[in-house]
Design a protein around this nucleic acid. Structure first.
Length: 683
DNA sequence: AGTTCGAGGATAGATACT
DNA sequence: AGTATCTATCCTCGAACT
């Protein structure tokens, strides 16, 4: 809010020519990339010799070289390959890479290669190919690659090979992970548009709902349904502005009823604060007593007031009841489901024009914090309604969190294939020891403390003593279950409940196995994981960015921790051009650094800043200049003083640890302001 | 020095009641 | 419908331990 005031005397301190998609430090020239590829190839040859015997790989070679009776050979291949191979292939296919490319990647790195390494290779290849193609176009060369690798690949689209692969795969009825061909085809046909940051060619409709910094005329192909709705709404007496805003917010395909409701709401908002004191009281009552969001109540009340059919007999006291009835009909999002889960329709969300578009930001914290605190946070983050999501919808454990962000919410996709959704799927070895009287299928929220060995043994003894005679009594069962729930104990042997292991926590949150290993003691690993994002959930939210940034993103990551946001972006196949990671704990920094190296990232990792409080205006100016802006600012600030688990110092957002949130909002405001000063070069 | 242990309520949301 | 009850919670502290 106040942070966005552009009245500053030093507005010319950032006057950088903005080159879309080209990060300052990302100087991956064709030669360099070629060198990298060559290097990798020679490495892989060495690996071929010293690694495991080449039974699987040799069959791959056959396929790659002969390419004749392809289907049959592929069958053989799948039979011969281990589970890793099939799993990896399907995952990568879901990310939109072609079978051809994936097989090549596996050929180079071997079937045992970490998935993230393969992803990085595929992304790099894509990038490389893109540069290649561009150069060829410029110099007017033919299409001889001189690269035996690329030979035989059919992907012809510059800069969109991933996407093209995606549409290609559709023929085979594979699950289509990314944006459907409709937006991408038009993307190819239409001329590219340059937007704020390196957001690249997208469809008109995408751009218009996304960024205020590139106000393009809405020349999209007119949907007859949209036209019809527009006409109807205009005949209802709404202004063109209101109608257009509603259409923009809800999308052209929205139903007329939804549009009508929303336009009514917009009208009421613009009517100003003409509401009576009675109405304010009603709103307050609904908000405080019924825990509805102010926004929802306003909507419902305004509808009730404006729509004559609802107010035939408007007795004073029935207003509230009527309003809440309407609210129930509207199906206000349950707190755990955010703005919509995978496979469900997207729910309403209002975002003002000033806030829409790049640079995006994404804030996370615990959902169940004291009453006032989310409101404070919201006020400092442009008054955007928080999205409350419980990660139990995405994984095997609960994690109720609130997210405030200005990302688009249309077209979200989750990571495929599905992660393990229950304890039993995640830890199949526990299944045979799981007592019938333990009904748990999901684990509770990951804490920063591990269940103690002492507790585990005590419960074991309790059980043993009563099992000598009969099954444990219901009272005993309740007691044991209580402890199991509190400390997330699982059954790893008959009558032995034990704490979950670190690598199981990693799996449950969506990290690779041993992500935090070598960086931490057991205790520190637990703490770091307990403080981390759920990669599955965050990836779902971030998935809308992939089609917007086909050439990668520049990220300012505050309170990075073990890099949940970075890993989420990587896992959905977004190239990390620049990551400026600000993290105060040295172990966490090492962890991200190790991951960066292990996955062979080719972008820039800047870990020079450790403390967000030390990231003043000057430093931010410097960073924005050096990297030519950021596409995404992401962070989850410390929750120590907000968590319900804290019995000693749960003193709210102003608390000694949690008040660092205000640094987040300051930085978001400053960076957005600085980026408005950037000059954008036209295409 | 660093690690592990048990003890220690309040609050918000979900559920189960009248 | 409104109320009562239940459940879970990115935890801190000092003491005891390695």
């Amino acid at each position: 809010m106040a942070a966005l005031s552009s009245s500053d005397n030093d507005d010319d301190d950032v006057l950088v020519e903005y080159v879309p998609g080209a990060a300052a430090a990302d100087s991956t020239s064709v030669e360099e990339n070629q060198h990298l590829v060559d290097h990798r190839r020679s490495c892989s040859h060495m690996k071929d010799h010293c690694d495991m015997g080449g039974d699987i790989r040799s069959s791959v070679v056959v396929v790659a070289e002969e390419g004749g009776d392809k289907q049959q050979q592929q069958q053989q291949l799948l039979v011969a390959a281990d589970l890793h191979y099939a799993e990896k292939e399907s995952r990568l296919l879901d990310m939109g890479f072609t079978t051809d490319l994936i097989q090549r990647a596996l050929l180079i790195y071997g079937t045992q290669a970490a998935e993230s390494v393969l992803v990085q290779f595929l992304l790099d290849w894509h990038e490389n190919h893109h540069h290649h193609h561009q150069q060829q176009q410029q110099s007017g060369e033919g299409n001889s690659h001189g690269d035996s690798f690329a030979a035989g690949l059919e992907v012809e689209v510059a800069g969109h090979s991933i996407i093209a692969a995606c549409t290609h795969d559709e023929d085979k009825d594979t699950k289509n992970y990314w944006l459907s061909k409709h937006s991408l085809k038009s993307c190819r046909n239409e001329q590219r548009r340059v937007c704020a940051c390196n957001m690249e060619a997208a469809t008109d409709s995408v751009i218009s709902t996304v960024t205020p910094f590139c106000p393009t005329p809405n020349t999209a192909i007119l949907d007859p349904k949209e036209q019809h709705n527009r006409k109807l709404l205009l005949t209802q007496g709404f202004t063109t502005g209101q109608v257009e805003q509603a259409l923009q917010e809800l999308g052209g395909g929205a139903e007329y009823d939804m549009l009508l409701d929303y336009t009514l709401y917009l009208m009421s908002e613009q009517d100003g604060l003409a509401s009576t004191s009675r109405r304010i009281n009603t709103v307050e009552k609904l908000v405080t007593e019924f825990k509805f969001s102010t926004h929802a109540v306003k909507m419902a009340l305004e509808r009730c007031g404006k729509n004559p059919t609802l107010c035939l007999n408007p007795p004073q006291d029935d207003g509230v009841a009527r309003a809440s009835k309407r609210i129930e009909k509207l199906q206000i999002p349950r707190r755990s489901e955010g703005f919509g889960l995978p496979g469900e329709p997207v729910k309403h969300r209002y975002l003002s024009d000033e806030i829409k578009g790049a640079p995006f930001f994404y804030f996370e914290n615990v959902a169940s914090m004291p009453n006032e605190d989310w409101n404070r946070i919201k006020l400092h983050l442009f008054d955007i309604e928080p999205e409350y999501v419980d990660s139990l919808h995405f994984s095997a454990c609960r994690r109720p969190r609130g997210y405030i962000h200005n990302l688009p919410i249309e077209g979200r996709k989750k990571i495929l294939p599905d992660p393990p959704m229950t304890i039993q799927e995640l830890m199949p070895q526990t299944k045979k020891f799981w007592p019938a009287w333990d009904p748990r299928t999901k684990l509770n929220c990951i804490n920063t403390r591990k269940g103690s060995e002492f507790l585990s043994k005590k419960l074991q003894l309790d059980l043993r003593s009563c099992l000598e005679t009969a099954d444990p009594s219901p009272a005993m069962q309740q007691e044991i279950l209580k402890w199991c729930r509190e400390w997330n104990l699982v059954w790893t042997a008959p009558n032995i409940p034990t704490p979950i292991a670190e690598n199981e926590m990693e799996a449950m949150l969506g990290f690779d196995k041993d992500h935090t290993r070598n960086c931490y003691s057991t205790r520190a690993r637990y703490k770091a994981l307990g403080n981390s994002f759920s990669v599955f959930t965050v990836a779902f939210h971030f998935s809308v960015l992939k089609p917007l940034y086909p050439r990668g993103m520049k990220i300012l990551s505050l309170f990075s921790g073990i890099g949940g946001a970075e890993i989420a972006l990587h896992k959905i196949g977004v190239k990390l051009q620049v990551v400026v990671s600000v993290e105060i704990i040295e172990g966490s920094r090492r962890c991200l650094e190790a991951w960066w190296a292990a996955t062979k990232q080719t972008g820039t990792l800047d870990q020079n800043h450790h403390d967000v409080t030390a990231l003043g205006r000057d430093e931010l100016v410097d960073l924005v200049k050096r990297y030519k802006g950021f596409d995404l600012i992401v962070g989850g600030s410390p929750c120590n003083n907000l968590s319900g688990n804290n019995q000693k110092t749960r003193c709210g957002i102003e608390g000694p640890q949690s008040n660092i949130f205000f640094e987040f909002s300051r930085i978001v405001g400053t960076v957005r302001e600085l980026m408005q000063g950037l000059q954008f070069s036209s295409p």
